[in-house]
Amino acid sequence: MPSPRYWREIPARYRLEAARCGGCGAILYPVRRICPACRGETFSPVKLSRRGKVITSTVIHAAPTEFQMEAPYAMAVVETPEGARLMVQVADCDLEEVVPGTEVTLEFRRIRKEGKGGILCYGHKAVPVR
């Protein structure tokens, strides 16, 4: 992934910047130009809380090449209190405990290394609340 492409995603990935639609109140994460619910084009900025609960989950055993050293690892769709949903890895957990309803925090972590140069790429991972 060339760095400009990575750089463009930084507001969403690093700071969890989202938007609330002025037309219907829907939360958009990541932000986009047109609201998928009402086609509205006016938004107010929202920062997502760094916590949420698991909507659904899996444990990846057959991993993509870049993640093979990490397998098996848990992944989940997490909903924040604002109603945004994120696809994230779940770290520092017992793989079996990541099930629908599990409460998590969202922590800033390294996600992957890109390309031959091994550029470090960051974002958020979920960690179960104890």
Partner: peptide, 24 residues
């Protein structure tokens, strides 16, 4: 690519999440 694949999910992984939601 940006919202899913970046984080390490695979196609079987996506359908596994669908399966777990259906089971739940």
């Amino acid at each position: 690519q940006e919202a899913e694949v970046y984080h390490g999910v695979t196609f079987p992984g996506l359908y596994a999440m669908i399966a777990r939601a259906h089971m739940e």
